[in-house]
Design a binder for these strands. Structure first.
Lengths: 131, 131
DNA sequence: ACATTACTACGATGGCATTCGTATGTCAAG
DNA sequence: CTTGACATACGAATGCCATCGTAGTAATGT
């Protein structure tokens, strides 16, 4: 019987950055992750390593130790974690009002007309789906 | 000439909770804030006091020391801070995709049919506004 | 006048996040 | 075999967050 793993805690800023790399690259070595992150921000290799080790303890990532260079992967899919984060902020800062959240996002971060239309379409579809 | 205050940093969890009280109550004493928070969560008075003092240092709140019981108020309106937080999460976790953010929020936090309709209306209006 | 209550200030603690340096082990090239 | 490149492990420094206890002081009630 498959054991249900407990929900990992909310990732911190540095952890989220690493998760982003793992989500887009898939299974990766520490070096892979470090290289990707070092492009945008000077970072020591061991810093990434240590953070990944901690993330493994927390259950945010899984580690495959078969090879000498261990291989890491996110233990939860991107969508799941994003959902957690969105719901968390929704509660903490918006008292559960999805409308306020959307308003806040739109007013600070200008989105293109195209994305706006997409957004509306998505919402219409979603509304149909729950009818 | 009015000095432009620097943007206060992103509020922490405890700080956000206090800000929420200040936004809904307006100018408040430490006691007011404490009473409001203690309803949902056992908290020492001095914990709230200390946090408010730190928030004042950071510029998250303003303090009026005229009376013996100092009076605090949020230095930024709710909408402004919410915007910051939404935009921050949008960047950090959603690579700027407002659609993903909305999808995440909706999939974790079930919203009523009414709110969904409201949301759609709001989006339509917003779209008109930027045309 | 004295005791009680209400307030601020502040130090201290424990925990976590982030970062880095160093130690140590493995492997392959010369 | 020795060296250099590359890997993990891990201790430690630093700083912030959240919390609380204590001290000191002003106001209030008896």
């Amino acid at each position: 019987m498959a054991q249900k793993q407990p929900d990992p805690p909310r990732p911190t800023d540095a952890e989220l950055e690493i998760l982003t790399v793992l989500w887009s690259r898939g299974r990766s070595t520490v070096r892979d992750v470090h290289d990707a992150i070092a492009l945008r921000k000077p970072t020591q290799y061991t810093t990434v390593l240590k953070t990944l080790q901690i993330m493994a303890e927390k259950g945010l990532v899984r580690r495959d130790e078969e090879q000498r260079a261990h291989i890491y992967e996110a233990s939860r899919p991107r969508e799941w974690t994003q959902s957690q984060l969105a719901a968390d902020l929704l509660q903490r800062a918006f008292s559960g009002s999805a409308k306020s959240l959307l308003l806040g996002a739109l007013s600070a971060h200008k989105v293109s007309r195209e994305e706006l239309a997409e957004l509306r379409k998505f919402l219409e579809e979603y509304e149909k789906g729950t009818r």
